[in-house]
Amino acid sequence: MTLEYQDIAEGGSFILTNYNSQPGQRLLKKKDFYKIIWAQDRDRTLTIDGYEIHLMKYQMLFCTP
């Protein structure tokens, strides 16, 4: 599932997608986006900028470009 809001006047967008979906995987790799990663259903371990990050269920991680 992917939901997208585009603000044509300001040139911005907000995209909400499932981490496990193919569009979600592509968006995670984009370097110029702010990202909010939410461990919604279970604990997750992610590698970000070479660091291993452990998120417990329901925790969120905010990433800047």
Rank of each mutant, 00 (worst) to 15 (best):
D43Y: 04
I15H: 02
L55T: 01
G50I: 04
Y51W: 08
N18E: 15
Y34L: 13
M60W: 05
L16V: 13
L16S: 08
K31G: 09
L28Q: 09
H54F: 08
I8A: 12
K29P: 03
Y5P: 00
I48V: 15
Q22K: 15
N20D: 14
Q25K: 15
H54T: 10
Y34V: 07
E10N: 15
N20Q: 14
N18L: 12
N20P: 00
L61R: 00
C63T: 07
M60A: 12
Y58A: 10
P23E: 03
I48A: 04
I48H: 00
R44P: 00
K35N: 00
G24K: 02
F14Q: 08
D7W: 06
D41Q: 11
F62L: 14
D7C: 10
I8M: 10
F14W: 12
D32K: 12
L27T: 00
H54I: 06
A9N: 09
I37C: 01
W38E: 04
R42E: 14
G12Y: 11
G50W: 06
L16C: 08
R44D: 03
L46H: 01
Y5K: 11
D7Y: 08
I8R: 11
M56E: 15
R26W: 09
A39G: 03
K30Q: 14
K35C: 06
F62K: 08
S21N: 07
C63Y: 07
L46V: 02
M60C: 10
I37P: 00
H54L: 10
S13C: 10
D32W: 06
K31W: 00
E10D: 12
L55F: 05
C63K: 07
T45V: 14
L27K: 02
K31Q: 12
A9L: 13
M56D: 09
E4R: 14
